[in-house]
């Protein structure tokens, strides 16, 4: 078994592109679910409209890359308004139903045959990353170092995406930290506890829920940009509902309503997934495990991730950063 490769890919995944893009989207979910108590099950749609906004603007309309970014950001804000206006007056569960349905509608429109000329059907769009890579300050080559015998190297284009991504994560975490310790954040947390009490104290609950939905949606859409820019392409099925559920897993793993919860959650999630995948497929290739083949190993890692999540919720329901006292109050 090639332990060097397994360890190398595992360590790299802790800071890699996937971790970055999921962390950004999970920060958005943390604002919705962790702080405000909004059950947004359509975060993948916010990523999708951003990724496609960028892709379509550049490839179909031939406009520069930064125009695509603006289109994507506006699309995410508009999507938040569209989902929020009819549902935020209603009970929390309606938002969950509408967001999950809205996200599927958006995915199906992107992959539909009727709009193949615009969105490219199930193949998606590719070839819009050049504008971003032209800004890359790193000359072509591999960058990194050897940790003992373990090589840790990234290609220049990966490094550029990761640098931008981690800067965005830092900025988003700073914003979350600032607003959540302010009176604005206090209103959001109070809404999570009891909307009617907040209304009785003279706060416009609908407006705050909408602000939360837009903020989390716009931060989440940054994850969609990172996906599109890192892979140079977008496909509709990347933005399925399971993406949203991975994001929830990360938020709970790291600890809901904690500034760094979603970031650490995303790192842990990908480290575990890559480690399991590497170990299982190496073990199959080396003949150590004989009762499954390589394809089954890929699926089996999700079984273990699910098992891990169950164990986490049983033994540490507050997540890595959570406060056990808060969970105890919930149980009353």
């Amino acid at each position: 078994m090639d332990w060097i490769t397994i360890l190398s890919t595992t360590i790299k995944s802790a800071v890699g592109v996937e971790t970055v893009l999921y962390a950004l989207a999970a920060i958005g979910i943390n604002i919705h679910f962790g702080y405000t108590g909004l059950l947004n099950f359509g975060q993948a749609a916010f990523m999708a409209v951003a990724g496609y906004g960028l892709a379509v603007t550049v490839t179909v309309m031939g406009l520069p890359f930064w125009v695509g970014i603006i289109v994507g950001l506006v699309a995410a804000a508009v999507l938040a308004l569209l989902l929020g206006i009819p549902t935020l007056h209603l009970r929390a569960d309606y938002l969950a139903i509408v967001t999950i349905a809205g996200a599927e509608i958006i995915r199906l429109v992107f992959r539909s045959v009727a709009f193949k000329d615009i969105f490219g059907g199930s193949d998606g769009r590719r070839g819009f990353g050049t504008g971003f890579q032209e800004l890359n300050p790193f000359p072509p080559g591999d960058y990194g170092f050897n940790l003992g015998p373990i090589p840790l190297f990234f290609a220049h284009w990966q490094l550029w995406v990761m640098l931008v991504g981690w800067v965005l994560i830092a900025v988003c975490c700073l914003i979350v930290y600032l607003v959540m310790k302010s009176p604005w954040g206090r209103v959001l947390k109070a809404i999570r506890e009891d909307e009617d009490a907040v209304r009785s104290l003279g706060k416009n609950v609908f407006s705050y829920k909408m602000q939360s939905l837009v903020l989390g949606g716009v931060i989440g859409c940054l994850g969609g940009f990172i996906y599109g820019l890192a892979y140079g392409s977008v496909q509709p099925d990347v933005f399925g509902t399971e993406t949203t559920f991975y994001l929830y897993t990360m938020v709970i793993l790291g600890g809901a309503a904690r500034v760094f919860g979603p970031v650490v959650g995303s790192m842990l999630f990908w480290v575990l997934l890559v480690l399991l995948n590497g170990t299982l497929s190496e073990a199959v290739a080396a003949g150590v495990i004989t009762f499954i083949d390589a394809n089954q190993a890929g699926a089996l890692r999700y079984v273990f991730v699910g098992l891990g999540l169950i164990l986490l919720l049983v033994f540490r329901p507050q997540g890595i950063f959570g406060d056990k006292r808060e969970i105890a109050i919930d149980a009353r």
Partner: peptide, 9 residues
């Protein structure tokens, strides 16, 4: 009537 303390604040 049913007291609305904001529990986790």
């Amino acid at each position: 009537q049913l007291t609305k303390a904001l529990s986790r604040l």
